[in-house]
């Protein structure tokens, strides 16, 4: 039997693969150094203290404060996510249907707060919401309340400030998705007899769902790990997971315990993504289709 001809396209392919690998190398190195190694070190710390130990994890499971903190963190994140959809969807919708000039104005207003630091914005909310703050004083002068409302140093204040900071992460992916919905489809809906309400529910809303999911994922994950805002506006009573981590390190010098909390949070998020991805094609939602 004659030997098969060597396929020169094979050689070409191999060369191309090497080029791609070389181009991706700096990014891979960066991820290895800045993500894989630290996370690995974190996991290692949580199970190694003069020998293998699960003491840190046992404590998380056993102690009430950890449970409550995790529950509170998820509760706040979920609240923030739901509110962000409710507030962000109309903003993104408005930006996607008005003329180009106005949509730039709307988006600029959404993104503008990004230019101030998170710390400054948290203090600004403190000034607005505290007992002698602008809102309480205004309400009292109007005679609507007798005693100042507790707007801050609790879950409410934390949710308000976190929502404010994370809203752009909801609006921008929503706007990106909505803007790509062909206007033809809405015109077609109208021409086929559907009024504005039906056109919205049957055509616009379903086609904007990928943006809703992308925004929810971003906001939820980011608020899970929020630190400065709940620290300042929670007033010590709203202890989120990130604060447990920092306290373990700063107050008790317990690196192992802090690492264990971090690992549990990471696993929880991974589990959530896994469950969600069973129902929703996340790769299609988050990536370019």
């Amino acid at each position: 039997m004659p030997a098969p001809m060597p396929d020169i396209s094979r050689q070409y392919q191999r060369r191309e693969q090497l080029t791609m690998l070389a181009l991706a190398f700096p990014a891979l190195l960066m991820i290895l150094l800045l993500v894989v190694l630290p996370v690995g070190w974190l996991a290692w710390q949580s199970i190694w203290h003069d020998g293998f130990t699960l003491e840190n994890y046992r404590r998380i499971l056993a102690e009430d404060i950890y449970w409550r903190s995790f529950a509170l963190t998820f509760e706040i994140s979920l609240t923030v996510t739901v509110l962000a959809v409710l507030l962000g969807y109309p903003i993104a919708y408005a930006a996607s249907i008005v003329s180009r000039g106005w949509s730039i104005v709307i988006l600029a207003l959404v993104v503008l707060p990004f230019w101030t630091s998170v710390l400054v914005r948290a203090y600004a909310w403190l000034a607005l919401l505290q007992r002698t703050g602008v809102i309480n004083q205004l309400l009292r002068q109007l005679g609507l309340i007798d005693a100042p409302l507790a707007l801050v140093h609790n879950t409410f204040g934390t949710v308000v400030a976190t929502l404010h900071i994370l809203l752009p992460f909801m609006v921008l992916p929503l706007y990106a998705t909505m803007q790509k919905i062909p206007r033809d489809l809405l015109q077609a809906g109208a021409s086929l007899g559907a009024g504005p309400v039906l056109t919205f529910w049957q055509i616009f809303l379903p086609l904007s769902l990928p943006g809703v999911l992308a925004g929810c994922t971003l906001v939820f994950v980011l608020s899970l790990g929020f630190y400065i805002t709940p620290e300042l506006l929670g007033g010590g009573r709203t202890v989120m997971v990130s604060m447990l981590v920092s306290r373990n390190v700063e107050l008790y010098d317990q690196w192992g315990a802090a690492s264990a909390v971090g690992v549990v949070l990471l696993l929880a998020v991974a589990a959530i993504f896994f469950v969600v991805s069973r129902f929703v094609p996340l790769d299609r939602v988050l990536g370019q289709r």
Partner: peptide, 25 residues
């Protein structure tokens, strides 16, 4: 009835749902 240049079919609906849309409306 309007037929658009790039058809403007609803991508999230099946052929049947697309055709039934005016009946729903």
């Amino acid at each position: 009835g309007v037929v658009f240049q790039n058809y403007a079919l609803f991508p999230h609906m099946s052929v049947g749902e697309n055709v039934a849309f005016p009946l729903r409306a």
